[in-house]
Amino acid sequence: MKLQTSSRIAIYAVLELARDPTRQLPAAGIGEAYGVSIHHLAKVLNTLVRSGLVKSVRGAGGGYLFTGSVKRTTLLDIISLFEPVEVSEGTSRREAETQGGMALQAILDEIDDISRATLNSVTLATMLKLIDQGRFDRAPGEAGGRAGEKRG
């Protein structure tokens, strides 16, 4: 499954902020940590502010604060702000009306259901716990090992 860049940036930003909800972080600090452009990050943060998950604090020493609940906010809550998580697209209307098209769609819907259920079950608290446990010691995209695999 691939996520749009905005969704990924939003998850990273929210995790950085949720790690300490009393701490205000400037956008620049978040952007540097993940190599994200300030322009793109600002747009993402605006969406997060409108959703109520994040608060913008103006003035000297200002920045962004996490205002949601780490135990109740899921990855799906964040991703849904930026892209639809279900709805497999790409089939033409004619294709979709064929038995083959419908059979394929049923399989794609099955995959979507599992993806959605998974994203809806992982809270920010769980993500922060995973990160703090330092379980992931492979570079992104490197083959081998599954999420959650322990070191050694």
């Binding site: 079950s121 809270t123 999420a147 959650g148």
Partner: peptide, 18 residues
């Protein structure tokens, strides 16, 4: 159950994965 978000979140929070 796939739609039991509360229980699935609980087990995920306890470190269980697919």
């Amino acid at each position: 159950a796939r739609d039991n978000h509360l229980l699935m979140s609980f087990f995920r929070g306890e470190g269980m994965t697919a």
